[in-house]
Design a binder for these strands. Structure first.
Lengths: 210, 210
DNA sequence: GGTGAAATACGTGTTAACACGTAATTAGCT
DNA sequence: AGCTAATTACGTGTTAACACGTATTTCACC
């Protein structure tokens, strides 16, 4: 298992060093490492490693973009993302691309060996800790699924500080329709009956609105 | 210089490993390291190191809290904070406490040796990169300084979804006064003349409101 | 080809958040 | 003691964001 070739990449030099040192001490076969997304992608195309352990957030190219390009270019390197992001959105996106692993940096040391082992065998590995977190924190996410497509579209515009009339213009509908949607959204989300509870909610959850 | 005793602490195991490995390779005298704020503080009180390199965001006790306790307890350990936070607020707080250094994790490897050298000589070291960033990114921060204490207090409550009447009750003043403050804040911040521009602004900048 | 959900829209009314002007009181500073 | 900024407060008016009910059209789906 430890003969599998691995490359690593993170724009965080200290973290990259920590990761490399750890894996080398454990006897893994690190064949390269990059300081940003572009370097990482170049390494992958050149070395065609078995596994690439990548940060999501990197300059020039994100871990997700790298995964996408690998998929379209038919590179069989198995991508493992290692990140601080706990957002469900990213987690879902990761599962859609051919990503084999997703680890949180907080628990990297405990989980990374398990992850590499599992991924080496061709099985995906998604941190249990992430699953736990997403489950405990998904009340609002579920609420979002109650909304219809139009309602979601309007919510996004509300989060961008658009007034009802502006939204109406943008969507070529009456501002009264927007008002009605707004009212319906408040009902569905069961927001407290305050004047600006909807704007407030939209602002607080704007990261989940796309 | 390299004989100075140093302890490190970060709740991020990989990063902590990267930091320790790096410093040890460079020949520094690492006498201990902690995985969270409490461990870090215990190490400091026990070992009284010359320098403590701490993350800001840690469980149980933040780097800032540790600095504060060291100050009140008369411990002369020089605190260096190493963080991903680019917020001016934290930077300012750091300068108020007896903190000797402030480094961004992104540039840690380039700057940490300089920092340790400078701090060892009893001089404070604050990353030039932070200063650059704060200057380019401080339009809103400066705007905040235009506000009076009462106005800031009200802004915080607005960001917490309080209505004018609720704020009035909380502060034992008339809701008309709150309205006036609100109007004045909008003028000072030069917000666009929209109905909820203030709530919107407060929500977007609530992290800078304390 | 009917049925239900979604999208569209209006009538009517209430309220919170503003604008703009004015003004009294308080607090800090010299 | 005197000056300035801050805080407090009201009058008056406008508008955006709601609530609640109702009604038509569109569309997917069986």
């Amino acid at each position: 298992m430890k003969h599998k070739s691995i490359i690593t990449a993170d724009d965080h030099p200290l973290l990259l060093k920590g990761l490399n040192d750890f894996l080398i001490e454990k006897g893994y076969n690190i064949v390269g490492c990059g300081a940003n997304g572009r370097e990482a992608y170049n390494l992958i195309t050149k070395l065609k490693p078995d596994i690439a352990i990548l940060d999501i957030q990197m300059p020039f190219m994100s871990g997700l973009e790298i995964a996408k390009k690998c998929k379209t270019n038919g590179i069989s390197t198995k991508i493992v993302l290692i990140t601080i992001h706990k957002e469900k959105e990213l987690y879902n996106k990761a599962q859609e691309l051919n990503i084999f692993g997703y680890i949180l940096k907080e628990f990297a040391i405990e989980e990374i060996e398990n992850c590499i082992t599992t991924v080496s065998e061709g099985q995906p590995y998604f941190s249990q800790k992430i699953k736990d977190m997403l489950n405990t924190n998904s009340a609002d996410d579920e609420a979002l699924n109650v909304l219809t497509p139009s309602e979601k579209k309007i919510l996004k515009l509300i989060a961008r500080d658009k007034t009802n009339k502006e939204i109406a213009s943008l969507l070529f509908i009456s501002y009264r329709t927007v008002e009605k949607h707004r009212s319906n959204i408040i009902n569905k989300l069961k927001l407290e009956p305050k004047t600006n509870s909807l704007l407030s909610w939209a602002k607080e959850h704007h990261d989940k609105l796309q």
